[in-house]
Nucleic acid binder design. Sequence first.
DNA 1: CAAAATTTTGCAAATGCTTGTCAACTGGCG
DNA 2: CGCCAGTTGACAAGCATTTGCAAAATTTTG
Lengths: 152, 152
Amino acid sequence: MLVNWRIIGSMTTMNHKPDYEKELRDAGVRITRPRRVILDILTATEDHPDAMEIFRRAVSVDSSISLSTVYRTMKLLEERGTIHRHAFNGGPSRFEQASGAHHDHLIDIETGDVIEFRSDRIEKLQEEIARSLGYDIVHHRLELYGRKRQAK
Amino acid sequence: MLVNWRIIGSMTTMNHKPDYEKELRDAGVRITRPRRVILDILTATEDHPDAMEIFRRAVSVDSSISLSTVYRTMKLLEERGTIHRHAFNGGPSRFEQASGAHHDHLIDIETGDVIEFRSDRIEKLQEEIARSLGYDIVHHRLELYGRKRQAK
DNA sequence: CAAAATTTTGCAAATGCTTGTCAACTGGCG
DNA sequence: CGCCAGTTGACAAGCATTTGCAAAATTTTG
């Protein structure tokens, strides 16, 4: 059977860990201690934490880091396209590395777990639809909200 | 040529205007003057206004209506499944009647315009993917963000 | 290597959207 | 027409996020 979609739950680690420090330094951004801590956290992250969660993890490394700095750093990285921001269910923004290939999300409405997947067929259909409507897609968002099927 | 998707920009009017008053009254909800004004606005609406916009339109009919009441009414209707709430781009919630058939959205990133469309093939693919991941879809969200193609 | 130049930080206060509180008001049945 | 739980408007409060500012840290210069 042809697999035209697949789970890519560990995609972030599947790809080479990006060297944020070099990337930012080359762009003329200063590498400070708070930023280094946050970048390390992001690099090691496999889930989709929100700002508060990143802040908690950061504080456990360096208790002087402020939440403002987390937000400022996330915004900085988002503007550079280094991370993606999601707002599942309208809740607080949750972040993930942008280094991996594009993918969509399936959110478990009971646990909040996020499963990544990708379907080339859906990607292609989206392109077709947008083109027919006279548009070029700049980006898109596909989120499936579901509940684990009961093992019968 | 087989059309397997279509624009449904005027879908809301394509369907019979729902009688919110009767619907709510039957459910034991009181029809007050503020609510009537808001319901009338929603019934006449073809776009996807946010709370503040609904409030502005309501005030022009009855200047005593408060923003709180708009939010309360929207929440009431949302809980009853009468309207849908969207948070395009993480901005303020925008609402639309739920009376029409399900559809997805293409948002013009330059103007904020929202075009409704539907693709049964995409719907089906989503089902397949969720099933394969062991989930049942409760609801989903597909938003294409694009820019109008320049007529060359 | 120290001082200047510039960016970044932590803190607190501010913002934007949304919900909660509460006394006053009002639909709609009796 | 009167009652009274459901509603309202006004405003305070709540959350997530952003911003102003003086102090602190980083890079640049001399």
